[in-house]
Design a protein around this nucleic acid. Structure first.
Lengths: 221, 221
DNA sequence: GTCTATAATACGATAGAC
DNA sequence: GTCTATCGTATTATAGAC
């Protein structure tokens, strides 16, 4: 059928990987996301990853040459997903709709992919040793593109004058906070371990903060 | 003079520690803050801490029984400093002044103590294994106390209705972001390693966000 | 209090049989 | 592809001389 069907026993796909290869790589990456996001790169061990993947350590290292290679694979897979909400900002929309949607998408990411968020946070906190290039090139370029849109809205008087890039920082930090610092959020609010009920109130807060006027000044009514 | 002057050679202070003890402990803690904040708990090694403290590893372990004990000492020292800005919010002030001052103090903390901020972030991200109790008791209580003040301002119509605790989360995340994610901030802005010039623009952004109205709605002028 | 030497172990990675 | 066994190293911590 497809390209390289040399080895008789191993039925290969077009990607050159057998079904079992893909399954095992997926199992490893899933387990590694658990462990890396919970303990950071140095705190994670191949023993725990192998254990969570129900696989022996040497077998795990048959699929990925090193611990670092697993980590890089996770980060690389993550980046596209991570940037999707920002990419979705349209120049032909209006500030309230576009920024509002962006905040909702980012907050949904935080709620749905907290492990990915913490993996990313750990990497940045460690000085971005693996994705420094990505930050300086791809992310920087995307931010400049979207900041130009926001700047146009500012110039048109539809938003308060501010540095659009710092507005993006504020959106990133407030939304990701609920994933990265969830332990603190839950402890302060008195919630249990798996409780994510605070996300509804968080969404209201961020709407008020970014789309409304938080503080009434005398005579502004 | 003071309490226990038993040992002849070692001149002790009221705290029961010789001058050289205090000096060495300070040197160790300073070096440990560097290393822990840069590499996290598991990424840090006693070798590097000892080296940065210009001290042999066994000598370092003469002052602190274990790596964890150094880490806990740093976190404990940090907590009071960390909460000082929040404690300073006065009930008899007005929202703009009090929240504005709080944001400035938090942002100053971020700029002046980025290593402390990253140490804290690493601890939370790891699930707060050492300061979970603190978060659930002391921090929770303080937040409730200050949230009550904010709630009163809301009830008096001086602030938009919102969950005050989530407002505090937003202030924490936006201000600490500039320390914890400084690598990303600098890479996106195209700044060099030690460059902290973005803090001025950050202060303006946070003023606009928390104290002004970010987005003009039609007819609100 | 400070050092050298070293114990004890955890961990990443490999060798080689099957 | 998967396993058992193991190597080599990094790292925490201690022993014991000075």
């Amino acid at each position: 059928m497809s390209g390289n069907a040399k080895s008789p026993a191993a039925v290969r796909t077009v990607a050159g990987k057998t079904r079992i290869q893909k399954e095992n790589e997926t199992r490893i990456l899933r387990a590694a996301l658990d462990v890396f996001s919970e303990s950071g790169f140095h705190g994670a061990t191949l023993d725990r990853i192998a254990s969570e993947a129900s696989m022996s350590k040497p077998n795990l290292l048959y699929y990925f040459k090193s611990k670092e290679e697993i980590h890089v694979a996770l980060l690389t897979d993550l980046l596209d997903v991570w940037l999707a909400p920002l990419r979705a900002i349209r120049p032909d929309g209006n500030p309230v709709d576009e920024i509002g949607s962006y905040i909702r998408r980012k907050l949904d990411s935080s709620r749905s992919f907290p492990r990915e968020s913490r993996l990313f946070a750990n990497e940045i906190l460690a000085g971005a040793p693996h994705i420094g290039d990505f930050l300086q090139t791809e992310l920087k370029q995307l931010v400049e593109e979207k900041a130009a849109i926001l700047q146009r809205w500012i110039d048109e008087g539809r938003m308060a004058p501010c540095d659009p890039r710092h507005l993006l920082f504020a959106i990133w930090s407030t939304t990701q906070h609920y994933a990265d610092f969830s332990v603190q959020v839950r402890h302060v609010l008195g919630l249990g371990a798996g409780d994510k009920s605070y996300y509804d109130e968080a969404a209201r807060m961020l709407d008020t903060l970014f789309l409304g006027q938080l503080i009434s000044r005398p005579g502004s009514d």
